[in-house]
Design a protein around this nucleic acid. Structure first.
Lengths: 194, 194, 194, 194
DNA sequence: GATGAATGAGGGTTCATTCAT
DNA sequence: TATGAATGAACCCTCATTCAT
């Protein structure tokens, strides 16, 4: 019998190599031969575990989305009040576990693929919807009638901060990002979070 | 009036074709042969007017940056008060002349190239700095000590709205974007702009 | 007790899958993974029972040749006169058991391999010789001095009908083929077969 | 201005190299890199003149078909009687200009592709129809009521002789082939052609 | 005996770039 | 100035084959 349970290991290995490769040499340069070299396997193996390159990339985006979702869920489970829920969503999105150089590189790269890639667009749509829904939910629990607008500003601001972080060496770090988001929410909700 | 030479016409023609191509078929698919076909010229011509493809792309980003700068400058020249200056910067960046489907497509595509392209990074740096400087300047004229932070939030929010517009069919249009930015500024500056 | 005859079962299973695959998806598309999938076994198994792909293909052609030979022999055993012997050879080659869609597909595919494949060429040579010898033998029993030429025409005609059947949806069926061959033999031998 | 009129030259060059390659190394081994090497050009050039490999192969089959048609037409123009027309069609198909080692190799290779290739099948259908029509026409001029059947036998016989020539080193040469076809026609039509 | 993981060569194809015209 | 012919490297992908299990 052949090795058992390799499938999940190899898939994970290749997805991780894809993310690392995108961060290190960029999306366009991340050919399958570069990715598989980084993963320490042959080029052919990719097609054992993924139908094609598009499939690997989609799986990679899904994994990034899962990480993000888990990061939010873990914090939401600890939240004990509506305000804490709001903070949980924000920290889940721009906390130090997500807002990393590798992370922002990968997100930016995938964002750029979305407009011309139906499959990736669908995944991206889920991600955006999830963030908005989480924000709206927390804000409604706080009694805000204008929850939708606040959520839209907040989520656009979060994405803008991700973008800035990806574009510039002296862009925001997680602490900066948190401070700036709270700056908006404090003004808008008349709070003193910090 | 100085006569515009063939050179400038051809360069402009190719740059416009590049932007259109990125919007229509995407950055990755925009090969030189596709771009020159769209411009109605031969493949070879590109290398008469640009050293190589990277050079054409850089020129294209510069043109996008110029448009943005001109859009802001034109409005600043009409501004008669610090608040109007602030609005001029914002409208110059997300007004209906800039915040177009073609525009957001192109920006997103170039953003994704920035992290691995020194030349493009330099142009992008100028663009970001210019926006921040303009915002800080207007806010300081309004007497805000926290001008830097407000500018950072505002500019991140603007970029976030661009990103949303590029990523989603039901993303913000120029009117939405303006309303959401002013939502933040009104809360933060205690104004009633609209 | 070790499994008895497993070898022969597996070989037969793979050969049949090869013939079916050639008919259904074509020779070029019949990779070992496709063939073994069709046989319901793993890819690796092929190399337990055949040295390599060429070996499997050769065995497949041999099986086709064996079927043909058996088809002729069975009829020859029933033949009671020289004329019946002649008909036995013809019907053995273009009878409804041989002249099937699967059969003509497979033969055409293998014919195309023969010119560049020494092993297959040898098998094919035997097949042609056997047909010619059988025809010549029957014709000589009928007293024909020109047995060789009649045999050559007959066998070329038979192969031509196979070819037509393989190439065209409205090519000859077994009945057509028989009629056309007899049309020649009746004219040449002044008979009234049908 | 670039070189003018290269298109037809290069296309012809590549088609000829394809035929030669099929004859020398076989259809399966005739990769584009082999074909272009034989033509003395780079691999990339093929896609300047043909959309893809399938397109090159189709053009090659069309050229073989054109050669055959021209070979028949040239002889038909010289024919002065129904019987001469019949001979013209036969000699046009198995005359020494068509019935060459290169020719029979190429035909056999393409025949094998026909069952799984719609485009090639269409070309092949035209070729078969043309031969049948030509034969039927000549036979009707000779007053034969059974022209269709005679044509079917004759064309199957011709193809069978092509096949034999391709399959075997000691298959028929053009003289043998002619003699065997006339053997049938003489018997059937009660003629004494030779 | 049987599996399917793994390899690496080779396939067709696209591309930026060069250059003779 | 402008063309598009031509190149060759790199792309994604498929394949026969090997081998540890």
């Amino acid at each position: 019998m052949p090795k058992v349970g390799m499938e999940e290991i190899r898939r994970r290995q290749l997805i991780d190599a894809t993310i690392a490769s995108i961060h290190e040499i960029g999306f366009a340069e991340s050919s399958l031969s570069r990715i598989s070299a980084k993963a320490g396997v042959s080029t052919g193996i990719v097609h054992h575990y993924f139908r094609n390159k598009a499939d690997l990339l989609e799986a990679t985006l899904r994994q990034l989305a899962d990480r993000l979702r888990d990061s939010v869920i873990a914090r939401l489970e600890q939240a004990k009040s509506p305000v804490e829920r709001l903070l949980a969503v924000i920290d889940g999105n721009i906390g130090p576990d997500q807002f990393t150089p590798q992370g922002v590189s990968a997100w930016l790269a995938f964002w750029a693929q979305v407009p011309k890639n139906e499959k990736l667009a669908r995944v991206q749509h889920i991600i955006i919807s999830r963030l908005d829904d989480n924000l709206v939910h927390a804000l409604k629990l706080m009694g805000r009638r204008d929850a939708n607008d606040i959520a839209r500003v907040t989520s656009a601001l979060i994405d803008g901060l991700w973008l800035r972080a990806a574009l510039s060496a002296n862009g925001p770090d997680p602490r900066d990002a948190r401070r700036l988001v709270l700056d908006y929410l404090n003004a808008k909700l008349d709070l003193k979070l910090g």
